[in-house]
Amino acid sequence: MTLEIKICGLSTAVGLDAAITAGADLAGLVVFPPSPRHVDLAAGRALAARARGRIAIVALTVDADDALLGDIVAEIVPDILQLHGRESPARVAAVRARFGRPVMKALPVATAADLAVVPAYAAVADRLLFDAKAPKDATRPGGLGQPFDWHLLERLDPGLAFMLSGGLDAANVAEALRITAAPAVDVSSGVEQAPGDKNPDKIAAFVRAAREAAAALPLP
């Protein structure tokens, strides 16, 4: 199967170059100050300029207003906007229409009930990203390095455009792909040596493991 790989939370030229060298398809830049992977607009602009034409650029935000999204589009010029907060389907549709960029909407998953919103979001987003639901006391969204039960995704519409995230690393990505047949995977903390500090060797190992696992899966 063909697989897309996103390395998210890139904040340095070293990490970005490692993702490109390893053969990743998408580079995620986080514009959200509470995150240890946050890049401000100036840093994001510099990284995007370094990445452009070499890898697709994804700008991740959390419940951003139109003013911030406008600044991100103007300064970073991302290929994709990733909405990782509590944005409603209507908000997703509005962002997509206003800014003329493909939109990927992250959905937190802990139980089967969390998937009830999939049809509403799939109707307005270009792609969904399934991530582990954050703990109740978390200060930011996402699984914070923890996976969720991948078997919850076994009954998804096989034509759904989605990306799998949450606790992935080189050691478990093959099992995640075997269970979910995800067309794309996203990793952040799984390729770090410390929060926000990407490890080039871990990036290379993750991309290699994911590619090998995808190649071993039967075609859909």
Rank of each mutant, 00 (worst) to 15 (best):
G15H: 05
P218C: 11
F32Q: 01
T139N: 09
L3W: 06
I203C: 05
A49Y: 07
V30N: 01
R86C: 07
K198Y: 10
A171I: 09
E192S: 02
V109E: 08
G100I: 14
A184F: 03
L81H: 04
G166Y: 09
L29K: 03
A90F: 10
H151P: 02
L69A: 09
L115E: 11
V109Y: 03
L83A: 03
L164V: 13
G44H: 12
K105F: 09
A215G: 15
D63H: 12
A97Q: 15
P183C: 07
A213P: 04
L47K: 01
F130E: 05
G167T: 05
P200K: 12
V73S: 01
S188V: 00
T180G: 12
E154M: 14
A27S: 06
D17V: 00
A120W: 05
D157T: 12
E87F: 08
G143N: 10
A204D: 11
E192V: 03
V77M: 11
L41E: 01
A56D: 06
G70V: 08
G166P: 01
A134R: 10
E212L: 13
A27R: 00
I179N: 05
G190M: 03
K198N: 06
V62E: 00
A214K: 08
P158M: 14
A18L: 03
F162E: 01
A51E: 11
A112M: 02
V14W: 05
A97H: 14
D40T: 11
T61R: 05
R155N: 15
A132R: 11
R86Y: 00
L152N: 13
A113M: 09
D201S: 15
R98T: 15
N199G: 10
A43W: 02
I57D: 01
